[in-house]
């Protein structure tokens, strides 16, 4: 049942956003990959120090943030579908809802920063927290950029020419950017919170 509905959605093969956008997406993801490998390398050198520092963080909070981003990604998927079906205001509303998810994510993240500064003296001198702040900090910058894009998308989705080719290209790029933000967190979360 579900698969037949999915099959109807698929026209011929189509590049999401446009070919050039993938230069950016794969490039950005690969550099994060390099960063992940560096982190794992240094973690492997002194695993006990990293695990000890990591124990201050609450993995449940990290899990909650993962669920929030997954929810927001799904909202974007539904918003794009709604737009294809011509339900512009619903689509716009769903996009705004995913901006709110991004806001909740950042609020939880920054409250965690506060907690780290409270519990650890000079956390930037601890290797684990150096990686923690830089990984989550660069990711948070991506979240902020993504929230900006989603707001623009929410406005574009309401326009008369919402599904014109140029507009659609932008909407798909914004959607893919947001999914990339989610995807990066899917790796950062286990690397920082779950590895022992």
């Amino acid at each position: 049942m579900i698969s037949t509905i999915g099959a109807q959605d698929k026209p011929s093969r189509h590049i999401p956003a446009e070919a050039g956008a993938w230069v950016f997406l794969f490039g950005d993801m690969s550099i994060f990959g390099l960063f992940f490998a560096t982190y794992l390398y240094y973690r492997g050198i002194s695993p006990a120090d990293f695990t000890a520092a990591q124990s201050i963080l609450d993995p449940n909070l990290g899990t909650l943030n993962t669920l929030i981003l997954l929810l927001s990604s799904w909202l974007v998927v539904v918003a794009m579908r709604a737009l294809r079906m011509g339900r512009q205001s619903l689509s716009s509303g769903l996009l705004i809802a995913s901006v709110l998810c991004g806001g909740i994510f950042l609020t939880l993240k920054f409250s965690e920063y506060g907690k780290v500064f409270e519990l650890v003296d000079e956390p930037l001198k601890v290797d684990y927290f150096m990686y923690y702040f830089m990984l989550t900090g660069l990711h948070s910058l991506h979240v902020m950029v993504g929230m900006g894009l989603l707001l623009f998308m929410a406005r574009h989705a309401l326009g008369v020419s919402a599904t014109s080719p140029a507009n659609w290209q932008f909407l798909e790029f914004g959607g893919c950017y947001w999914h990339m933000v989610d995807l990066l967190w899917i790796v950062i979360f286990p690397l920082l919170y779950l590895l022992r």
């Binding site: 446009e18 070919a19 050039g20 956008a21 993938w22 230069v23 950016f24 490039g27 950005d28 550099i31 830089m134 660069l138 910058l141």
Partner: peptide, 21 residues
Amino acid sequence: FPRWSGYFCFLGATLTAPGFP
């Protein structure tokens, strides 16, 4: 300019940023 070069610029902006800390 080809469109990929625009996205390459965005990638460049992202990759030159990590000097700030």
